[in-house]
Simulated scan of single mutants.
Amino acid sequence: MLRARGSGRRPVMLAIAGDSAAGKTTLTRGLVQCLGADRMTAVCVDDYHRYDRAERSGKPFTALHPDCNHIDIMEQHLQLLSMGEPILKPVYDHSTGELVRPELVEPRDFVIVEGLLPLHTRMARACFDITVYLDPPEPLRHSWKVRRDCAKRGYTPEQVMAELDRREPESAAYIRPQRKHADIVVRFAPVAGRLDPPGTPLSAELLLRPTIDHPDLADVLDSGPAGTGADRTETAMHLRLHRDTDGRPVDALHVHGYVSPEESQVVKKAILEHLGPRAGTALSDPGVLGQLGDAGTSDPLAITQLLLLYHLLDADHRQAA
């Protein structure tokens, strides 16, 4: 539903930043489906590309460079959305590489903004309640990009790898620095040192920075059905203290891909219980969480999405209080 103007409440804004083919759209899709399209607006800031694909081929920079994007218009539109105002958003068609007719976007209760540069400027970052950066290992991201761009965008593997090489300096200069501005850094990757059977979902590591209030996950780890003990839940998820890139200690939540559905369900149920009655009324279809399209489902993805839903609903609840 559209957030009524003058109600004193604004949309809850979530940013999901990351490099090309980092998994932003997959993560966003489950959130929209679970909360319902009638309550959530999804915006891709890659639509603010200044040039189409043909024009970019003659430029000395790639789509990752701020000069290749209308950053000033993006900032203005993010401010309007955060205040509950509609925007006329440009549209970039990834399948053709063309800029097409703009579309009217009206913010609903929740707004997810995903793309390459949503956290690039201070003004843009100020618009968000929750910020996320997707940080898969580069070899894994490269394989995802080759698979996607060859299947959906008409490239050859050689063309994709050449473009990745061309983009690398700008990834290092403009995309990866956004990581330091995220409340949550998510990395999907295999567990180092394990030889899991083919088809095992990737595990997830989530750095939970103290810039927002996270749910008390110690309760999740300590709880479990009678007779299972805490170790059963810790198989699915556990917290460890890590050193962030700046040397500061930060909680790292590990969600392993090799857990059984029964074990992961313990964790999902516990997070839902943290939401209380809000979960039953706000989440239209929790069963869609963790879906990977044709590649099946992933419990680490589902739990990651559920944690983000917690933050969205918690921020909305705080506004209403």
Rank of each mutant, 00 (worst) to 15 (best):
A226N: 01
P139Y: 01
H317E: 12
P201Y: 11
V185F: 10
R240F: 12
G224P: 03
D314F: 07
M40A: 15
L253F: 09
H242P: 03
R278D: 12
Y48N: 08
T41I: 09
R141F: 08
G23N: 04
L31T: 07
V186S: 00
S7G: 08
L164V: 14
K24L: 04
H120S: 09
G154P: 07
A162D: 03
A230R: 12
L81C: 01
G30V: 06
Q159Y: 06
V43R: 02
R187K: 08
M40C: 15
G247Y: 08
L116K: 10
R179A: 09
D149K: 06
K59I: 03
S171K: 15
N69L: 13
I184T: 02
A279Y: 02
G247T: 02
R56E: 08
K180D: 13
A226E: 14
A21R: 03
M40W: 02
I184S: 06
L289D: 04
Y155P: 05
R232F: 06
M1A: 15
E75D: 08
V43L: 12
L116Y: 03
D183W: 05
P107D: 00
P90L: 05
L64S: 07
Y310R: 07
V250F: 03
G287V: 06
A173L: 03
T41V: 12
V43W: 01
H49Q: 09
S284K: 13
G257S: 08
P277A: 15
R10C: 09
L80F: 13
T25C: 04
Q79I: 13
T96H: 03
G296R: 12
R5L: 14
S143M: 11
H65Y: 10
P277G: 13
G276F: 06
P137K: 12
A295H: 14
V32W: 08
V267Q: 03
V255H: 00
S298M: 04
V12C: 06
P249V: 05
G247R: 06
A17C: 11
L119T: 02
G276M: 06
R5Y: 14
V91Y: 11
A270L: 02
P190R: 00
L14W: 08
R108W: 00
Q305T: 01
V12W: 01
T245E: 13
I271P: 05
L217R: 05
R176T: 14
L140A: 09
P177E: 13
R50P: 02
R278K: 11
Y174H: 11
L99S: 04
L88R: 14
Q33G: 08
P210A: 00
V186C: 04
L64D: 10
A151K: 15
P201I: 07
R9Q: 15
T297V: 15
E205A: 02
I73K: 10
R39K: 10
P225Y: 07
R147Q: 15
D251Y: 11
A189K: 06
P169I: 13
H242E: 14
E234V: 02
K180P: 04
D285Q: 12
E103C: 04
F128C: 03
E114H: 10
E262N: 07
G115P: 01
N69S: 11
A279P: 11
L221M: 15
R29C: 06
L208I: 10
R248M: 11
H120W: 05
V146Y: 10
S171D: 10
R148H: 07
